[in-house]
Simulated assay, not measured.
Amino acid sequence: MKIDIHCHSTASDGCLSPEELVQRAHNLQVNVLALTDHDTLAGIVPAKQAAEGLQGGVPLSIVSGIELSCRWHSFEIHILGWHFDPEHPQLVNLVAQQTAARRERAAQILKRLDARGVKAEHLQGVWVQQQDPNKLVTRKHIADALLAGGYVKNLDEAFARYLGKGQSAYVQPAWCTIEQAVDAIQAAGGEAGIAHPLAYAMSSKWLKRLVTDFQLAGGHAIEVSSGQQAPQQRAQLAQLANDFELMASAGSDFHSPGRWRELGHNLKLPPQARPVWQHWSEVNGQSI
């Protein structure tokens, strides 16, 4: 089976709508898909409705998902949640808090850019999106505006000059803790996993400390397989999961069509890994 439980739509910082994302996954013969937008549940219902209308090809099951931004020491850690009740009050309340924090952070970043001389008309589109209750503004959206306005030559420069940690327009986020994220996902009946564990620019000692704290918080899995990683990294993460008696997940972290992060591509788990979806009805042929 092709299983991809980490991807993004226009509900956060992806370029395809939930409906377009589902159609692309179907075209690529993905069997199980979790839409894990950043700090929002808004895309889940449209994705499930789109999947119900698919015709022909392999069946596609949509699993509820989210990627919650968390603060942990000096790091921003992303916790994935899957297979939960998206209407559970504790999770809904936490997402509302995250949404408010994200909107406040975006507003402060935009004001700092204005003070840096970025013209208002170049940020107008982001301000408009900021007012839409169904959309969230991320630093990626602001970086896109800087690129379109000619302030930077590429997105990496936008973060290096303006938006990255320590730069003049950077604003420290007020995210939830890992414990709060895992607790809310569990309360809603789901499983929680650490997203892209090797992407946090930390030493192996700090990574093991992170996984230890995550396990103590009641976490379930770490993301072992992604589309763009060396084989030794996949094996390393599978061993890390086993060392801490955690399950494994796989996801493309898809944001837009491209060569490196395609839906369902190259996501097979190593044989020693225990998949987080091993008891999901969608995977066992009893789609709910």
Rank of each mutant, 00 (worst) to 15 (best):
L94R: 05
Q228L: 12
E121G: 13
R259S: 14
E104R: 06
P173K: 06
G164E: 09
A143N: 11
S256R: 14
A235N: 09
R209G: 13
Q228F: 11
G117Q: 04
G53R: 08
P173E: 07
I77P: 02
A107P: 03
F84Y: 09
E245A: 13
W280N: 08
I194C: 02
Q124P: 06
I79V: 15
C7N: 09
V22S: 02
Q49I: 03
G227W: 04
K165L: 10
D156Q: 15
Y170T: 10
K140W: 13
S74W: 12
A174R: 09
C15E: 15
T40N: 07
G65Q: 05
G117W: 03
L123I: 13
L110A: 12
R102W: 07
F244S: 00
I77R: 07
V283N: 10
R71F: 11
K140A: 15
V276I: 05
T212F: 13
F84H: 09
E104L: 09
M247T: 06
W175H: 12
E67D: 00
F84L: 06
L207I: 08
A217E: 01
D37M: 06
V211M: 03
L155K: 14
L33Q: 00
L41H: 06
S281A: 15
D243F: 04
E245R: 11
R102F: 08
A235G: 04
P59Y: 09
F254Y: 05
A201T: 09
G251R: 02
Q233W: 03
L240A: 12
P133A: 08
W72F: 10
D37A: 05
Q272D: 14
G53H: 05
K165G: 07
F214S: 00
I109L: 06
Q90D: 15
H26G: 04
D114A: 15
A174P: 00
D156H: 14
F254I: 00
Q232C: 04
A25S: 01
A235C: 06
S287V: 14
A230R: 10
H220E: 00
K119P: 07
I109M: 12
S249W: 01
H83M: 00
Y151N: 05
R105G: 08
K208T: 09
I44T: 02
P133S: 08
V126T: 13
T10A: 04
V22N: 02
T40A: 11
T10D: 05
H141P: 11
A115Q: 15
V283E: 10
G149T: 11
D144G: 07
K268P: 00
L21Q: 03
D37E: 06
I77L: 03
Y200P: 01
L163D: 10
V137T: 12
L110T: 10
P46I: 10
Q49V: 07
A230P: 03
L21E: 02
E104V: 01
H196K: 08
P18I: 02
A107R: 10
I79T: 06
H122R: 13
S225L: 01
D114N: 12
V45G: 06
A238E: 03
